[in-house]
Design a protein around this nucleic acid. Structure first.
Lengths: 341, 341
DNA sequence: AAGCATCGTCGATGCGTATCGACGGACACT
DNA sequence: AGTGTCCGTCGATACGCATCGACGATGCTT
């Protein structure tokens, strides 16, 4: 691994260094014969271009900066699927992924752009009022947000349509003759941080419940180990009517289900439950619950499409500034059917 | 954000560009007066050095490559704490973290080194026979493994001491008069992939059980949703004697506990249980279980210490080629005390 | 007081690639 | 045959920084 350069390749192929470069970039026509000779030489040396030199001369790094927050109170459905999808999408475009943690705040952003560490940035865990958003907007590299802040500052945002999801949940319960709706909320940490989707979901749910004239209450989230208490709190609301429960925080669904089971409360008979989660979780659960899809892979895939479009606006169709992935409700066993009357 | 260069800084500070460089690297003495002027100029311009140029000229990228595997069957205790610790450690040394997924196999490694994308690599999810290990050993950059392959090929390895953990578990059960030991194994995916710690744990446990003359069985892992079956399988083994259960796969502990609870089998009275997990999980569980500590943060912190030592051997003390973090057993409620006799 | 090491700074060079202008040759057309 | 057009290739240069050798200015020694 003696670290070959394009000059070595050129010498072996019997061409000039610039020709090797043009073979790689394809920015000038190269005869098929020469091209083959160069490619052979590259293969023979297992040549890899020096990314630093490339960044210096070509002013593009082929690196995507990924800003995530690790601390608790985070996402409703796990960070890993996002990261994984982003990584594989980057790879598909021959780009690398540079990881930056959010606890650096906007300093991390400035560093990414200032040091020319990446060509574009994708930022997750956006708060409604996020100090990083204006900084990101002023950066010299494009930034895509996963999440929608109150002021998007001209940045492109991609996320699940939490407003639509909330409406959908309320409509489903209203349409099946429920009297009251309870939302099992997000963890305290997420509430306090003002994560954007928390507000988006709750506000939309309240609005829609009002439209339907249904009383809606938000109760404390189900923390791990607190299932029993949450279930009690929930059941205390039941005044004999038809109670519908909405659980937007994926992690809370399973504990809640098992707590209900323990109390011999059967979702779909005694009570109704709609969860926000990936479809596979909902299917494999016992019982399988009616869910509204939350597919992190879809969201991050679209975010990456937007990002690469920003890097090369010629390619593909124009992307919307706010790109919301439509949720999908799948009926399973946990919502009581409308009473026949 | 007009992208200033060190030449701009030099002009403003009234010095030459090389002086600016020496202020940054500290590789030559600079008078305090000049140093201040340069620092002021840098602050004024919010100058950030161009990482590509720096990599090209200085042949060091200040980037750490992190190779992880996302797919299932993975780690017993979550990927995120590892990544988080590695990221923050890198940051503390003013290094970035470049993420590479393991499904690229050794190609990802070659790319990292060949393109001079990073100064060192840290690789997780090592298999006992891992095709990437010999490749890694031949690389021009140092590589630290989290995990111990059968042939470490001269690489530095850091991991929990799974052999010691297994011995510790068996000893604890033997010392409290148990007749039989059952290990609830790892997920099939982990077994098939030959993840290094699986073999290390099981072999060591078998050996120690033999020393103690105790029958030891390994049963299928507890997959999510399969708790009941696993519990049955487990209880079927109970012939009236004192049965000790060891659960090395952290994710399996909670489901198993709840399955036992459902069958009115009380750990600590009817049966004994020792889990491998982080201490915080063990404490917060209901009931709190006797555990052997598995602290990903310790492991990755030590791995990063080794990595930075390899990058600068002058600093700090020599690091062992195989650095095993000693496990710690904390007695809680789930192991039956030795019978008084 | 002259010689000598040390300190602090500068100018010049090289790192490996992308890109621009130039140029010789093949070809099509007057 | 002469002129113009592409095509394919080359040489030279710039990118921003680290580093090396050089050199004037000190301070110290004898």
């Amino acid at each position: 691994m003696a670290a070959f350069t394009s000059k070595d390749v050129a010498r072996i192929a019997g061409v000039s260094q610039s020709t090797v470069s043009y073979v790689m970039t394809g920015k000038r026509p190269i005869s098929e014969r020469t091209r083959q000779r160069v490619l052979d030489a590259m293969a023979q040396l297992t040549y890899e271009p020096h990314s630093g030199a490339r960044a210096l001369a070509g002013r593009r790094t082929r690196v995507v900066g990924l800003v995530v927050r690790f601390g608790a109170g985070g996402d409703a459905f796990g960070l890993l699927p996002f990261i994984e999808t982003i990584a594989s999408s980057a790879r598909a475009h021959d780009h690398e992924v540079l990881l930056v943690t959010a606890d650096e705040g906007s300093a991390g952003l400035r560093r990414l752009a200032g040091r020319a560490l990446c060509d574009a940035i994708i930022m997750m865990d956006i708060e409604e009022q996020d100090e990083r958003v204006p900084v990101a907007a002023a950066l010299s590299v494009p930034v895509v947000l996963i999440g929608v802040p109150a002021d998007q500052a001209g940045l492109h945002c991609v996320d699940l349509d939490f407003e639509a999801a909330a409406r959908m949940a309320v409509e489903e319960l209203a349409g099946t003759g429920h009297d009251e709706i309870v939302i099992v909320g997000y963890p305290a940490a997420a509430m306090e941080r003002g994560l954007n989707y928390v507000g988006r979901f709750l506000r939309s749910a309240r609005r829609q419940a009002q439209v339907r004239g249904l009383p809606l209450t938000v109760i404390e989230p189900v923390d791990h180990g607190q299932e029993a208490a949450a279930a009690d709190q929930l059941l205390a609301r039941r005044t004999g009517g038809r109670l519908g429960v909405v659980v937007p925080h994926s992690d809370a669904i399973m504990p809640l289900l098992s707590a209900l089971r323990k109390k011999d409360v059967v979702p779909g008979c005694d009570i109704s439950l709609i969860g926000l989660s990936s479809d596979s979780w909902a299917e494999q659960s016992d019982p399988p619950y009616t869910n509204i899809s939350v597919e992190p892979r879809d969201v991050s895939r679209r975010a990456m499409e937007t990002l690469f479009w920003l890097l090369d606006p010629g390619s593909g169709v124009e992307r919307p500034a706010i790109d919301l992935v439509a949720p999908r409700l799948t009926r399973r066993t946990t919502v009581m059917p409308a009473p026949a009357n």
